[in-house]
Design a protein around this nucleic acid. Sequence first.
DNA 1: CTTGTGTTTTTCATATCGTGAAAAATGATT
DNA 2: AATCATTTTTCACGATATGAAAAACACAAG
Lengths: 281, 281
Amino acid sequence: MAIPDNPESGPRRTRGRPRGWDDKTAQNTIKSLDRAMAVFDHVSRGSGLALSTIAAETQESPATIYRILVTLAGRGLVEFDAEAQLWHIGPHAFTIGTRFLRRTSLVDRARPVLRRLMEATGETANLGVEREGAILFVSQVETHASIRAFFPPGTLSPMHVSGIGKALLAAMPQDRLERLLAGQDFASFTEHTITDRDRLADELRRIRARGYAVDDEERNLGMRCIAAPVFDMNAEAVAGVSLSGPTSRVTPDAVVGLSGEVIAAAEALTRAIGGVARREV
Amino acid sequence: MAIPDNPESGPRRTRGRPRGWDDKTAQNTIKSLDRAMAVFDHVSRGSGLALSTIAAETQESPATIYRILVTLAGRGLVEFDAEAQLWHIGPHAFTIGTRFLRRTSLVDRARPVLRRLMEATGETANLGVEREGAILFVSQVETHASIRAFFPPGTLSPMHVSGIGKALLAAMPQDRLERLLAGQDFASFTEHTITDRDRLADELRRIRARGYAVDDEERNLGMRCIAAPVFDMNAEAVAGVSLSGPTSRVTPDAVVGLSGEVIAAAEALTRAIGGVARREV
DNA sequence: CTTGTGTTTTTCATATCGTGAAAAATGATT
DNA sequence: AATCATTTTTCACGATATGAAAAACACAAG
C-alpha cells in the first residue's frame, strides 16, 4: 500500500504574507469576541449551565453573559432548555464543527507534529495506526543522524513488539483488547520480545500508569522506541506517535526526558485532529 | 430533535423565567458578536477562503475580518494555512461541536455496538437520529474495505431516502408520521427514490412487518443500506442503526443475513440506553 | 534591479456599541 | 401574600470596535 505523503504542494499564490505568524500577532484580537468565545467554550463543556453559574465561573457580569448567550442562541450555537432553565451547546455548533472533518487527514496533520518532534529530539519520529491487528507505519520524519532507525512507511509490525502497538493496546477498552489479542501469536523477534500474555498485561498496566510505551529492543536489537497514543473525537486511540533510535543515544536515562516530548507531540496531534484525550471525557 | 435527555441532571432551581422565549428577545443580541459568528459560519462552509474573499462575501471591512479571524484563530476555532494563505475551520470548532453529542449518552453507548456490527459484517455501521425532519448521522464505524460507503458524521439526509429515516418513520405513531411528512417534498436522488406518498406508505408497512428497512440505491446509486430502529424508555424510536455498503457486496441475497445483525445491534443499543422495543410495551 | 500590482497588516481618530450597576420582572417557595 | 433567587431590561458612560487609509509585503513583470 502506498502511503500518500504529499509534502508541500498545491496553490502557492502567496502575497503580502507577514513575517512572524507565531502568536505575537495576538495583539490584534478583539477583546469582547474573545471573551464571548470563552463563554461559548465554557457552555459547551458543561452539561446544562445556569446563567448565574456561567457568570460566576467566567467572572463576567450576568448581563453580559445574557446578551452573549442570546446572540449565540440566535445562530443555534447554544440552546436554552426552557424547562430546566439551563444553557446547552446547540445543534448548529455540531453542524459547523463537523465541517472540520472534510479536510482532516491524520497523515497531513501529523507532518508538522512529527517534524517538530524530530527537531526537538534529533531522532526519527513515526506515525502508526492499527490495521487488522497489526501496526501500520504510515508516516515518518527521519533524523539527520547517520546512525538511525530504519523501517520505511508501509511497514507492518505486530502490536506486541512495537511501541505504538503497545501504547494503543494500553489505551483500549478491555473487551476490544481481548478480542484483538485472541488473534495474536506473540511471535518472538529478539530475546527481549514479550511473548507471554501475563507479562504483556503487566506491561500494559505500567504503560497506562506513566502515559507512554517503550519498545526496548523487542523488535530489533539495538533499537529503542518511545510511543504515546493519539485519540479521536470519541476518545478512542486511533494512532500512535513514536520516536525511534539506536540504544546508544536513546539510553534508559534519556528515555525519561524524551518521553515528555513524545507525549506532548501525541497530545498536539490529538488536538489537531479534534480528538479528546481519554481523561478529558 | 428527540434525543433522550437524562432527566436527573443537576440543579433544577427554576426561577425568574421570562415569558416569551420565541425570538422577540432578539433585540438584546450583541451586534459585533453576531457578525463575527456570521463570519465563523461562513469560513466553516468554505473550504479554504482568502481574507479578501471573506471580506467581500460578508460585506465587511478587511480590517474587521482580519481581527475576527485572528481572534477566532487564537482559540483554534479557525485556522490559517500559511502555505496557501487561506482560512479554514479549526480543530477546536470540531471539539466544541461534538460536545453537542454528549448531551445524550446515546452516542457513547452506540460506539461498541457499532464497532461490533462492523466487525461482524465487514461493512460500515452508522448511527442516525431525527432532527428537524431529516436524519442526522451522528456516529459511524467504518469498514476497512477499500470500497466503502462514505458520508461523514454530521451529514443530513431527508428521511424518505435513508434507511434509518424509513425505519424511524415506520416505527412512528401515525399522527407524528403525518406531521413529519407534511413538511417533506420527497426530493428525488436516483431513479429508485420513492417519491410517491402511497408507495412510501406501502414501504413502511413492509418495514414494520419485517423489522428492518432497506435503502436500495434510493439515495446513492451503487449503495445499499439496511437499518433498524432504536427505542428509548418510552418505546419511541429515537435513533436508527444502519449498515451501508456497495451493492456488489450487499446483494439482495446478503441482505437477509445482514438484517439479522442490524436488528440485533439495534436491539442491543435499545437495551444499552434503557429503552424498550415497541412490542414489549 | 526596479517598478507595479494585489494582497494583508497596522495605525489612528471617531463615535459606535458593548458594558456593568442597578432596577424591574418573573416564577418558585414559604 | 410576601419573600427570595434568579433572569431581563434599562440607562449613562467610556472602553473599544470600526473603517479609511497608509504601510508592509510577496510576487510578477519590465
